[in-house]
Design a protein around this nucleic acid. Structure first.
Lengths: 118, 118
DNA sequence: TCAACGATTCAAGGATTATTGAAATATGGA
DNA sequence: TCCATATTTCAATAATCCTTGAATCGTTGA
């Protein structure tokens, strides 16, 4: 994740509807969600959800895949992890104080990393 | 850091000049930088830097403090850590795959956390 | 083939954000 | 007090983003 991608990702996440969509897609996991379901749950019009989905895809945060009549959207875990990484490395450039609490949060939901550290 | 603050922070970081400013302020640490120095280093006009500084302050990512004629801006480490935390917790809501790599990055610049985990 | 479904695209409008330069404010020193 | 410095504020313009509804596209089943 370079700066260009990070800027796009920050922009994508700075809009309420899109942040909502990302949260839903992260929760729904690899199965993803159809555009229509997203629109329904987020309570926005089909064309509006389509606009925001395109924006999120342009930022690399989600991917799409047609499944019969539906188009299924899925969160791009690598991109989201990459964004956290960008923010963390950028902010931690010599300043452990910023990311120490963040590391604690990240560590508690990533047991594999705990083992690596011991 | 609630969603409202996170949205503002993402918006603030989605602009090239502002991301540049944040990076400079994080590096410069608690001493911060005067508005003029920021403008000079970022190669933007005084009034433009003022606009962006106000935006960053509105998002809670920086604080200001007058020092004689200058106004010194400082990165708000808590807010930056809070944003990483928001992103991490939000994305990790049941999905360790996303934040495992992020945790590794965060851990390597926060030795204190390593000890806590052992 | 035709109708229905799920979704996108397009154009228009409104709203927000960014840039610029000129004017204003605050501070410190002669 | 007056001037210079450091910075902000303001108004105007340009650029970008968001929303809406109508039209379009691809897929499936009758």
């Amino acid at each position: 994740m370079d700066q260009r991608q990070a800027l796009a990702a920050f922009g994508a996440l700075s809009q309420e509807t899109r942040l909502h969509i990302i949260r839903m897609l992260v929760v729904s996991g690899p199965d993803g969600m159809a555009a229509g379901s997203i629109a329904e749950k987020a309570e926005v019009s089909p064309s509006n959800v389509s606009f925001h989905l395109k924006e999120l895809e342009r930022a690399g945060l989600i991917t799409q895949q047609r499944e019969s009549r539906s188009i299924i959207y899925t969160a791009n875990y690598d991109a989201l992890g990459g964004l956290i990484r960008f923010l963390t490395e950028d902010c931690c450039g010599g300043n452990a104080e910023i990311c120490a609490p963040a590391a604690a949060v990240a560590a508690c939901c990533a047991p594999a990393t705990k083992e690596e550290l011991q």
